[in-house]
Amino acid sequence: MALVLIEDSELLESALRGDRRSLGKLISRIELGFNPGLKKSKTWTLGVTGPPGVGKSTLIGSMISEWVRRGERVAVLAVDPSSPKSGGALLGDRMRMQGSDSSDSVYVRSIATRNHPGGLSYFIDPMIDVLAAAGWSKIIIETVGSGQSQTRIAAFTDRILLVEGPDRGDIIQAEKAGIIELADIIAINKSDIPSAKETFDSIIYSLDMSKSSNVDVHLVSALNGDGIISLIASIEKCHNYEDENFIRLKERLLSFWDSRLLSYPDLNDLLEQLNTGTITLDEASDMVCKGLLEEEI
């Protein structure tokens, strides 16, 4: 055990000095539960979420190119779900990010959710801290917005970009997913397809109805670059709501709560009792709360 610790601290040191191989290994260690315990430094983070197939990765690719041109160093953590059946994962985001493989100023790391209890919530913060400490000035977390626990990962960032696309049916679908409330900026991608304008209009209309937000909505094309510059300007001027944004804090809290619940040692027992009907859901959640408290002591 002590040996491993020495190795970890050496890894951390050389990762922070800028060695990419060490950074890669360090992130793998964090995935396995290692926490380097860095002091929280100033980070710049952006969460990018949205339904599958709307062009999140491609859009990130064109934003990366622009940021790199401006002298930024951009790191992307691209999160994809692991298969619940085999435990394997297909990580294909980086192939859609142009320039992700050839610049010293870009670091792209694919991350499988691995069905960690409660998803990635325990690991995403230390990963962000390490990347920031290693000098990555823009840190982007990409997650598929299909399911609450996936979307919640985006809540660990300071600003959230929701990407939507044309021809995805009624905008009500997007509202049902509950992602719109989390978003600071919305980008309707694929403006090269005429019906994208309809999606754009209906999102604007729906936001007007709710009157709740000052969300910027952009019509962009990752394919031909239209609207990317003004999208970036909007992302850059977006405030960091960290302490004020109750919705986001709530998502983070829920995410941690999921982790705690799923790592509850007697969870299977509890499920068994629920299955046989010996206890009710109400009783089960009481038992979990009590059990977790005792664990603390």
Binding site: S82, S86, G88, L90, L91, G92, M95, R96, D101, S110
Partner: peptide, 13 residues
């Protein structure tokens, strides 16, 4: 195939 065998597979394009 490799994903279904439980591996994490990154395809480069």
């Amino acid at each position: 195939i490799l994903r279904d065998a439980g591996h994490e597979v990154i395809y480069t394009g």
